[in-house]
Nucleic acid binder design. Structure first.
Lengths: 249, 249
DNA sequence: TGTCGTCTGTACTCCATCGGACATAGTGGA
DNA sequence: TCCACTATGTCCGATGGAGTACAGACGACA
């Protein structure tokens, strides 16, 4: 909700991968429209069926697109970190969606008014191509999660989630409670607690009262489902196509 | 795989909602590139990690985007019917994805070479805006399915699936076996068989050996989860924005 | 330093679904 | 007309996870 301004605003826009892929000219054009933010969990970035006011380019931390039930149940559908941008509905021209977007792991980054993004897209620069590919990554992530939520076990999904967050945060212990995590992956907290205790006992993670850090990525990968590899490989492929096709334009 | 040409090609392109929303000029421009097809289940329209050759505009029947496990398990992630188009990765500029797209319910419609679509999109007509909105509908569908697969019960999901197919087929009994349906919604066939028998006993559906017809939409809706309403409402909203914003251009 | 609130561990019952096996019934072809 | 094949019905033990309840433990704050 509130933008904390305690610390000096000193974020490098290029820590966000989308902004980093822009040309100097494009970045300096939109630069003045970018505002630095530092947001705690669980700040709401977009409400369900409400017009998107700002799009966010994270530099560290995780935002998360959340589906909502008629009964009010929520499940995490996609993570957005420094590789991407929140507010895809703005890019898709509709400006809102029935999902919420919230801060899942305390987030730093830059934000921009939705209208400014729309204007920039009208110019048809690199950003459109970047966001097209980002849209595909998000879609692939979602598609894989549909399968994952249906047939993979709780501990596999938990391991995957931890790894995916770890890729997107700057420093070691990141801030998430088990209670919140359980909601995100759509399980009961006690069930998740058991899995986390096992991870801890196996030396894969360390945590205490909402501060988690990964101790053994390889070990977690072994316990995780293959979805993480499928998603990572697609993201990698699309990074490749961007370099080849768009840098030269 | 094979395009059946037994029956005379007499499909009206405007039975597909995307093509119907094009201006006469646009439609007549791409008309010559459209080829009529009639495909049985389970024809593969796109392979995983293979370049998309054709995009399909269904007029009746259902194509389905399917996620695949490292273990080869598959789960249905989104339906594409006469409201949409297969091959969104072409629209997103990447031309392939790690998902498969297959015919789920025997399909009639029109297809077009991926390259032709790309060219048409370069012209920047109505089609781009249409596909942007269609992309959002697919994303919302996927996001909702992530939640649905996680927390809704088998019979609710089965009811939802039947209703969503029914919206997309031309005539009453459509062709799907329980075995195939079970794979699509990611459950064991025996479990699905029980649910189907209950639906049949309650007079909600009729079926025999792969031929299913809905007898009582209201009854099925009552047994279905709310996801179907959330998705339909978003699709309806986006149809609305299209009329307002784009017809006048 | 004590207290309260939040976060985590644990135990237990119940249920949906899994995963496999087998029986039955339509259907098309020989 | 019969056979073979595919689609559907049914059963059953095993199990992951839902739900719920309660206890312990760490930190922040007074």
């Amino acid at each position: 909700m509130s933008t904390e301004r305690d610390r000096p605003p000193d974020l490098d826009p290029r820590e966000n991968h989308l902004l980093a892929a822009l040309s100097d000219r494009e970045l300096s054009r939109i630069g003045p429209s970018l505002e630095q933010v530092r947001l705690p969990r669980p700040t709401e970035l977009e409400g369900a069926n409400e017009p998107v006011e700002f799009v966010y380019f994270p530099t560290s931390g995780v935002a998360s697109i959340v589906s909502i039930d008629e009964g009010g149940e929520t499940v995490d559908t996609a993570m957005i970190g420094r590789e991407g941008m929140t507010g895809l509905s703005v890019f898709l021209g509709t400006g809102q969606s029935p999902m919420r977007t919230i801060v899942q792991v305390p987030l730093t980054g830059l934000r921009m008014r939705a209208a400014v993004l729309s204007d920039e897209l009208e110019r048809g620069g690199t950003l459109r191509a970047l966001l097209q590919r980002h849209t595909q990554v998000v879609m692939v992530t979602m598609a894989q999660l549909i399968l994952c939520n249906r047939i993979h076990l709780l501990d596999q999904r938990a391991a995957r989630w931890l790894l995916q967050v770890d890729e997107r945060v700057e420093e070691a212990p990141f801030s998430v409670t088990q209670d919140f995590l359980a909601q995100m992956i759509g399980v009961q907290r006690p069930a998740l607690s058991v899995a986390m205790r096992q991870f801890k006992a196996a030396g894969l993670v360390k945590y205490s009262r909402g501060q988690i850090s990964i101790a053994d990525r390889g070990g977690l990968l072994a316990r995780s489902c293959g979805c993480i590899r499928i998603i990572a490989s697609e993201a990698g492929r699309l990074r490749g196509t961007l370099k080849r096709e768009d840098t030269g334009r």
